[in-house]
Design a protein around this nucleic acid. Structure first.
Lengths: 121, 121
DNA sequence: CAGAATCCTCGCCGATACTG
DNA sequence: CAGTATCGGCGAGGATTCTG
């Protein structure tokens, strides 16, 4: 726990980096809140995600086994996403993190403003 | 909790994005494990971080009030870093996340390999 | 509706050189 | 020792277009 290895060989870094990307956590929180969702519903909920990035993010989460994807052979096509069991086990930790962020964001923003003033124009 | 706002206006996203950058969590884990550390000691522990990125990361964490920086007026200069009280309150959540990553990384890597094979050349 | 493919931009981050 | 300054690549991610 004292030393850390480069990304390629350190599983902890590898996994934390995935969660740290721009949309993964947001998508998982959305799925956890709303349960099973269609592609377009997710996009509506996270209004400023691009179609491309939603696709990429969902594929990555699926590859990692955190989200499952179900295609219904209909016209027009319907695809539904939901958290897997593994994905669900991650959610309490994410929620704790969100809770912490909510609790401390005032302090953090105050601190940023304070230190900003110390940098003269 | 159901809808999310664009980055600039959503404090949760703002803060989670900071933690999601390449080095912040790693630096905080290092400081939490070893207590007060000098700049060069942190760099030795996280062997593949560049000098520039360590400086930038520490400055950001300082601006957010998660890490404190103490300069000793000596020659050669000595600068020590440690987690603030606010920073310490974040650590249990990080550790939970790391714990989860350790617990599930085998499943995740297995899943990745499985789905990789489904993509033909 | 749910994507695949392409192009392009922007900013993260690393390497290097210099300083108090 | 602990930075700052500058340059440059490279890849994440956005906009757009096309399809089953």
């Amino acid at each position: 726990m004292k030393d850390f290895h480069p990304t390629g060989t350190c599983p902890i870094r590898d996994i934390l980096c995935r969660l740290g990307d721009k949309w993964s956590m947001l998508v998982m929180i959305t799925l956890n809140t709303n349960g099973t969702m269609r592609f377009s519903d997710i996009q509506k909920t996270i209004s400023d995600i691009s179609q491309r990035m939603l696709t990429v993010t969902l594929r990555t989460l699926e590859t990692d086994g955190l989200v499952s994807r179900t295609v219904y052979a209909e016209v027009p096509p319907r695809v539904e996403y939901q958290l897997t069991e593994t994905g669900k086990t991650l959610m309490p930790h994410i929620e704790n993190l969100v809770g912490w962020a909510l609790e401390h964001m005032t302090d953090i923003f105050d601190n940023r403003k304070k230190t900003e003033r110390q940098q003269p124009a």
